[in-house]
Amino acid sequence: MKVNVFQKHRYLVLYLPALILFSVFFLTPFVLMIRMSFFIGKPLHCYIEGFTIENYLRFLRDFYVHTRLMFTLQLSAPVIFLTLVLAYIMAYAISRSSGIKRLILICVTIFPIWINLVVIAFSWQVIFARYGLINFFLTNLGIIDEPTPLGYNFLSVVIGLVHVCLPYTILTLLSVLDNIDPTLEEAAKDLGATKFKIFVEVTLPMSMPGIITGAAFCFVWTMSSFVIPSFLGSPLQKTIGIEIANQVLTALNWPYGSVLSIVLLCITSSTLLISNILRERTARWAKQ
């Protein structure tokens, strides 16, 4: 009797819909993207079938793309730093509170997740605008005489990205902080450690896995950001994401767009991979 593979492995049946979805609409497009990157790129023609490595060579000598890549890397540093600091404070406060306070803080944290990026970018535009919130306060307080537009610069892009990264990072850190056994801190206190010492010696090292994951995700989101910088930045703040979208949508050079996409994909996935290894490593002793 032939044994039906699905009867023997029931889990396969249950995984099947998702696996089909992913292989047809996720894996296949990315495989096709690799093929696309070897087609002949001709601006405004999407692509011409053929085989060439010209697109990759172009990437190697495309100085403009290099500057955009460097800029995005530079952008990610302050975003990661600010997000981690703010998220850590918030997550720490949530993990130390209970009842209604915890509920409210979690709601505040999570709520922006479902507000779309355009709305967030737009609202920051309104805040930074010439007749926006900040200028209103600055002029009324007499700090400046004439309202000046504050948006469309490095800082506004950073603020927008921090706002987007914050909720997820808070939640990531919270799940780590919630799992720290409070008796550990009590033990440290009992042994004579000050509040500051407890934090540096116990809490912070124990939350390393969350910090690593949080930083990795902030990096990935900044590297692939596109909506936020294109609203809140000037042409000087063009990220690699904007350049990729530009190649695909405006320049209509799909093969070159593919090459840039693949480069970005390699950067983000290797970051996640490394962060995962690092996290496992720190988590191993954090569990002790």
């Binding site: 996720f26 296949t28 096709l32 993207m33 989101w221 692939s224 990729i244 593919s258 970005l264 994909l265």
Partner: peptide
């Protein structure tokens, strides 16, 4: 496998789907 789409930048997924379909 199940988690990969969650961590892949949407920008790239959007582009890959556009090129494929």
């Amino acid at each position: 496998i199940m988690i990969i789409p969650y961590v892949t930048p949407s920008l790239l997924v959007g582009i890959a789907l556009l090129m494929a379909f």
